[in-house]
Amino acid sequence: MVIRADIGVIGGSGLYSLLDNATEVEVTTPYGPPSDVITVGQIGSRSVAFLPRHGRDHRFAPHRIPYRANLWALRSLGVRQVLAPSAVGSLRPELGPGTLVIPDQLVDRTSGRAQTYYDTEGVVHVAFADPYCPTGRAAAVSTARSSGWDLADDGTLVVIEGPRFSTRAESRWFTANGWTIVGMTGFPESILARELALCYTSLSLVTDHDAGVEVGEGVSHEEVLSFFAANVTRMRSLVADVVTALPEERTCLCAHALDGLKLPFDLPE
């Protein structure tokens, strides 16, 4: 039996119980194995594939995650829409822990990460002015608002290399540039999704104020994990609700990202 899914969720281990009637699926890709075995199951009438971004045992640091394999594996299973819940730091005093940010822009401050599929057999330039799916964002904003989240319905996510957190000077510089939140995994996930003509929507949960915003010793790994774990049940409900709110037919620009471009190889169907 061929197992397929039309929506992918890339997130943490606390989201495993998201799916009903789940089946584990191993997928091979030209870019090596994904972060872990993919779990496919149901949310209502929708078939969903869940992939733990860092691996089940959190063995992949942000700069070591096999991003290309992850997105390729999801598309291989039929996924065309991706939700990406993650923990982020806030760069603004008014956006405290517990705020949900649905960013509409990003800034890449990573280095050395493989961020394209089209780097050896032929160059392909994919438009990326608006990095997130407008349809996915609209569904997420509407769902979060009706569920009573403290919500920021736009904003700029700056993605840093990690695994270290920002210095105070870096954090203050990010804020001075007008950026909203800071994380470590939102890129290259988003551009790789676009290069595969997938819809990609970030669900960014603020777990802390970044070092340049708060007074004290700065952000700790324990603090981030503890806050996200305390809110994982609520995040799991949000993801499930957004899944059911996503339209089955895609009419957004993401679906047409590769139209008119000559690809050097075939993408998985």
Rank of each mutant, 00 (worst) to 15 (best):
A229E: 15
R137C: 03
L106N: 03
T233K: 06
H221M: 07
G183D: 09
T207H: 04
V182F: 02
V232S: 07
D208I: 12
S171Y: 12
P163Q: 05
E189L: 03
C199T: 13
S111R: 09
A169N: 02
Y200N: 01
F187I: 10
T99I: 06
A152E: 11
V219A: 03
E222W: 01
D210Q: 06
A138H: 12
V124S: 03
G212K: 08
R194E: 10
E189C: 04
T99P: 10
R172Q: 15
G136E: 09
E222Q: 11
G98K: 13
W173G: 12
V123E: 15
F174P: 08
F228T: 07
D104R: 02
A197Y: 08
L205E: 00
S202L: 09
F227I: 04
V126Y: 03
F128W: 09
P97G: 01
S147I: 03
E161F: 00
A176D: 15
S190H: 02
Y132C: 01
V123G: 11
A197G: 08
V124T: 02
A197N: 12
S146T: 07
R172A: 09
A230C: 00
C199N: 12
D130G: 00
D108I: 14
P188K: 03
A140E: 07
A144H: 11
D104Y: 02
G98L: 15
V219E: 01
S220M: 00
V215F: 02
V182S: 10
S202C: 08
F165S: 06
A144N: 05
I181W: 05
E170D: 07
D154I: 09
S220T: 15
A169I: 07
A127M: 09
A176M: 14
V126C: 01
V182C: 10
G216Q: 02
A169S: 09
T233A: 14
V107R: 08
